[in-house]
Structures are given as structure tokens and as C-alpha cells.
Design a protein around this nucleic acid. Structure first.
Lengths: 228, 228
DNA sequence: CAAAATATTTAAGCGCACTTAAATTTTATT
DNA sequence: AATAAAATTTAAGTGCGCTTAAATATTTTG
């Protein structure tokens, strides 16, 4: 892999940070598919630019400047994803990799225009929050994995937790996308697989039943609406 | 300037080639704003990859493979320009530099989709031809510079010959864009400046008179429609 | 047509983002 | 707490696309 830029390092640090614990070199190396040595090199450069706080052998976290840059990148990425999906009509399984390329080569003006065309969306097609021009993230709604829904309970898809093509393509086949309502019809305790009812959008109406494995269900997050 | 890629070299060679004469190193260096030494370096690499025929001290021309790559790049560039202008609504003076960034980071699928959305346009907003998926260029219509129109003659804008922001912004102010009809009302032989009538598009109707210098008129190409 | 001017290439070197291999620090184990 | 295992950093080196300065080839011109 080539030409992984500083921005990508910042994005990985941003996405893998959880309060209180630093992001380690190995995590970054894995996500970017580069050697640990390359990561150490880059971290030293980013630290010199005051973008991150780097504690050798321990890990890193973002400083103000780095945080701003990372958020701007995430914003660009998620706005492109949303645009590619909703306006251009690319399949969900393509938008992530396409956006990853485009995010590095779009002016702020273009991004702002795309956002305007989209009507200032709060979440991208995976359900991830889109930072505003000023870097503010919309509050996320509470969600639970589909796997934790009880039988006869229903929820609306809020977020998916995996970027692999296979995962996303399968969801598309099942008609599962953001905001789609899903009801659990049956749970088979043998393997914890579920029989679900995917409610169609207004135009087509109706609902379809599908069987999904526990692993899929654990990576689909829904907002619980009501019991029935 | 940094990170000027092979593709950019190929594009410059493509754009500056005229049958029978090779493209010289200096022309390339000027267009890309790099040193002659950098150009020589890169030409050797491109020649090794059989993308170009390089005759030291003389210049270069594209070979089959290089031609295909260059045309694909030009296609990506012009489709983005058209999309940014017509769909996204960016000002004409911005589309060239924006497209220059995007053209290197878009998949063929995306480009094909944009082309489809645009309805398979033949020309970009500057009037330059857009190569088809197979690399075929639409036949260009015959055009003459606005400066060569006679008084009372009228033509439709087919192409503009300058990419500078100032030039394009001024045209926008005058309401001059592709396919717009222009009539020469008066020619002042003192400085060869023209008084022109720019016909508005259907929705607004009417026409506006403007005075433009010879230099502007020489860079606007029109298709002669009729005498009056 | 030789000398001067111009264009082009070669040489040496730089910063970047990587690599592998060796050295060092941290963590886990008993 | 010593030692083995794992994680991380340092060291050395690579290819890329650039730079400036020097050498060489081509073109112009008086």
C-alpha cells in the first residue's frame, strides 16, 4: 500500500481513541496496513507538528489541532459517503472505499455544497454521525444490537458496525438499510439466529421475512421503538 | 508544487501534441511548474514503461498505452468539470482546479455513473470534447474566434481557450457561457475591441450589450449560425 | 560557419513514506 | 524478581518526485 498520508493516521487515531486509553502503534499499523516502524516514524512527525501527544512505548492521542484536522477529514468522508449513496446511487458496499479516495481531494467549498444539496444530513448511510462545518457532532441516539431485541420487539436500523463488502452486500440483499424497521419474529436458541421481518419503504409496502445469524445481528444496531 | 504524478505528465503531453511535432521538455516543465531536470527524469521512466516514445533533446510523443491512459484521464477530468458545473453548481472558474484533484481519485464506475446522470454529454463547460468510455472523441464542430466575426454576424459559443480564473470569472459576469448566442454589434478598428450582444437563455429572455477587448474575443470560439 | 545563446541532460542531493532487521523497552509468567 | 515473550523503537536502506548546479547538445545569429 502506498501514499498513506498524515490525514489517514489522524483518522485512525481519532476513530480508535476511547477516553482514558491511548491509541497504540500496533493498532494504527494494522488499520493502515503498514509496518510498526513506519508508524513510529510518522508519529514522531505528527508530534513535532503538535498534532498529537506521543508517549513512546505507550501510544498517542490527538491534540487540539490534530483533532480539528481529523474531524474535518471524517466530515469530508461521511458527506461523500452520503452523497455517493443517496444522490449518485452507488451501492452501499462501494461508498466507503470511493469516499476514502475523494475525501483527500475535495475543497471545503465542494464539501459544503454537497452538504447543502443533501439538506444537512446528520448521519451517513452507515449511521455514523456527520460533523458540522464547525466540527460539532450530532448527538447519537441510543441503540442496541439487533441480537438483543426480544421476540416480537421491533426497531429502526440506526447504525451498522462493519465495513466489509460482504457484510454490506448481504444487508442490501436483505433490504436492510438505515431507518428501515425490523421486527424479530423468532429466535432459535440453538445458534441464536433470528427470523426477522424487514418492513419495506412506503412506495412498495409490505414486509419480507429473512433468517440471519447471530453474528450479523450483533453488527446491526437498532433504536427500539415499541413493543407489540 | 508537489506530487505531480505520471498521469499529469501524460495529460500535458496529450494536450500539447500536434501532429508531426514532438512535445518538448520545456513545454512540459512550464505547464507543470517543475524543473527541466524533473521532466527529463520522468520522461525516462515513462519511456521505460512504454507509455511514450522519448527522443533525447528532441521531445516525446504518446505510444498506444500512454495515449489510452491520457485519454482516460482527460475523460475523468471533463466529466467531473461538467458534473461540478451543471449538477453541483460550482462557478466555472472553480471547476478546473477542483476536477484536477478529483480526476485522480475516482473509480471508473463512479465516472460512468456521473456520465449517465449527465446524459452522456459530448462537451464540457469549456467546450472541450469528452472522450467516450471507449476513448472516442466526438467530432468537433468548426469554430472561429469571436474576434473574426463581422459586424452584425452572430454565433453560438462553442469553446473557450483559457483556464485562468480571471478570464472565466469575467465571462461569467458578461453572461457568456457554452451555447450562448452572441452578435457583434460594432467593431472599433482603433483597438479591435467589440461591442457585442449576449442573448439570454429562454427563461429570462432579452439581451445585454457589452464591450470586450480583442484579447478576450480571440479566446472565445463561436460556431457561425447565420448572417443578418 | 564559428561563436553565442538557448535548450536539454547528467550529477548530486533532499524529504517523504515506506521497508526489514536489530536493539531496546515493556509486560507477562512462574 | 528474574526471565521469557511481546511490543515498540532505532538503524539502515529503498524508490519516488522533486531540487540546483554543472556539463553537453542544439539552434540562432552576425
Amino acid at each position: 500500500m502506498f501514499n498513506i498520508s498524515k490525514e489517514d493516521y489522524l483518522r485512525v487515531i481519532y476513530k480508535n481513541y476511547t477516553a482514558g486509553s491511548l491509541v497504540t502503534a500496533t493498532v494504527i499499523a494494522d488499520k493502515l496496513n503498514v509496518s510498526n516502524a513506519a508508524v513510529t516514524d510518522m508519529l514522531k512527525k505528527l508530534a513535532k507538528e503538535k498534532l498529537i501527544k506521543y508517549i513512546p512505548y505507550k501510544g498517542v492521542e490527538l491534540l487540539q489541532k490534530g483533532m480539528e484536522l481529523a474531524i474535518s477529514l471524517v466530515r469530508r468522508h461521511r458527506i461523500w459517503e452520503t452523497y455517493l449513496y443517496k444522490i449518485i446511487g452507488l451501492p452501499l458496499s462501494m461508498v466507503d472505499s470511493e469516499a476514502e479516495n475523494l475525501e483527500h481531494s475535495s475543497s471545503d467549498e465542494l464539501i459544503n455544497r454537497l452538504e447543502e444539496i443533501l439538506g444537512y444530513p446528520e448521519f451517513d448511510p452507515h449511521g455514523d454521525p456527520i460533523p458540522s462545518k464547525k466540527g460539532i457532532l450530532p448527538k447519537k441516539k441510543k441503540s442496541i444490537p439487533l441480537s438483543e431485541l426480544e421476540v416480537d420487539e421491533q426497531g429502526a436500523v440506526l447504525r451498522v458496525n462493519d465495513d466489509s463488502d460482504e457484510f454490506l452486500e448481504h444487508l442490501t440483499k436483505l433490504g436492510i438499510e438505515l431507518n428501515r424497521k425490523i421486527k424479530v419474529v423468532e429466535r432459535r436458541s440453538f445458534d441464536n439466529s433470528l427470523l426477522i421481518e424487514v418492513h419495506a419503504d412506503a412506495p412498495l409496502r409490505g414486509k419480507k421475512e429473512h433468517s440471519i445469524s447471530e453474528k450479523y445481528a450483533k453488527n446491526i444496531f437498532v433504536e427500539v421503538k415499541s413493543k407489540k
